[in-house]
Design a protein around this nucleic acid. Structure first.
Ligand code: FES
Ligand code: FES
Lengths: 143, 143
DNA sequence: ATAATAAAGGACAAGTTTGTCCTTTATTAT
DNA sequence: ATAATAAAGGACAAACTTGTCCTTTATTAT
């Protein structure tokens, strides 16, 4: 399960990305309304993504958050790793210090493929992909 | 990702179950050593599983934890649900209040199958299955 | 019956994650 | 230049999870 912080990050970046076609920047207040989270909380997590250049931002009037064409093509994986930590997709399901075929925990054989399928999906899906269904009303960020 | 508490529960129950063939009860101290967790912490979580009859216990000298034949065949799913909550396998990956095909979040289409494959594995694997590899040295609870 | 043992249970302590506020810095428009 | 705007950043507060301790209760053996 992804942490609440990571879920917020994904929803926020999805909303920001959804304005990419119109080339519009969005502010914290606007994001807060559309993903139903506190402005402060969103600000905090976007700060982190911004520092890592996963999203872009401009200060001042007419400022806000937006994504570049390059960022538009970044995989969801980078956001998850940024928030959950780089080793998120290598962790043992039972908390052993290291997940390994040589020294497996009792659920390793079945857990690893599940974890791997989630990783693959995160690696394949881009930030751009996240909002396509949203913009045609086939996906939602609230509810 | 399963919570630390749930990981501890699974490791503890696996160790308890591993003594099922010998028909031996195990105490908190012994479990603590073999799964490398604090005795107190394990006691707390086993209390819960015991109350739900997912494991059995006897107080007093020669007491300890053990599993019955029926419990031996219970699916891992019940342990996970007991600790993480009944709706664990129905939760939206982005934290929407309800995961639904009709009102999906942007990752629903890909997330749901992953979640479902994890659920299926938990439903299929029994407590008895957990220790079989352990007892022949092909799986580990520590490291 | 008594003493020893071991889980059950309650209370609370520590640690981690999440959320809030306030000040600073950068940008824009006047 | 000045004022207004909006993100960046630091500090702290609240909530939740995890870990520890201590007392009670049940069981066993003497
Ligand atoms: S060792 Fe536990 S999941 Fe791989
Ligand atoms: S609605 Fe988000 S995972 Fe189903």
């Amino acid at each position: 399960m992804l942490s609440i912080t990571c879920q917020t990050a994904i929803k926020a970046i999805t909303y920001i990305a959804s304005k990419y076609p119109e080339n519009k920047k969005v502010g914290l207040k606007e994001i807060a309304i559309h993903i139903n989270e506190s402005e402060h909380t969103i600000g905090k997590v976007l700060q982190k993504l911004s520092k890592l250049s996963l999203i872009s931002s401009h200060k001042g009037p007419k400022g806000g958050f937006f994504i570049s064409k390059t960022q538009h093509n970044l995989p969801l994986l980078l956001i998850v790793k940024a928030i959950e930590g780089d080793s998120y997709f290598e962790m043992c399901g039972l908390g052993l210090s290291k997940c390994s075929d040589k020294h497996p925990c009792p659920i390793h054989k079945d857990f690893k493929p599940v974890r791997e399928s989630f990783r693959k999906f995160c690696a394949k899906m881009t930030i751009g992909d996240l909002y396509s269904d949203l913009n045609v009303g086939n996906a939602f960020l609230i509810g």
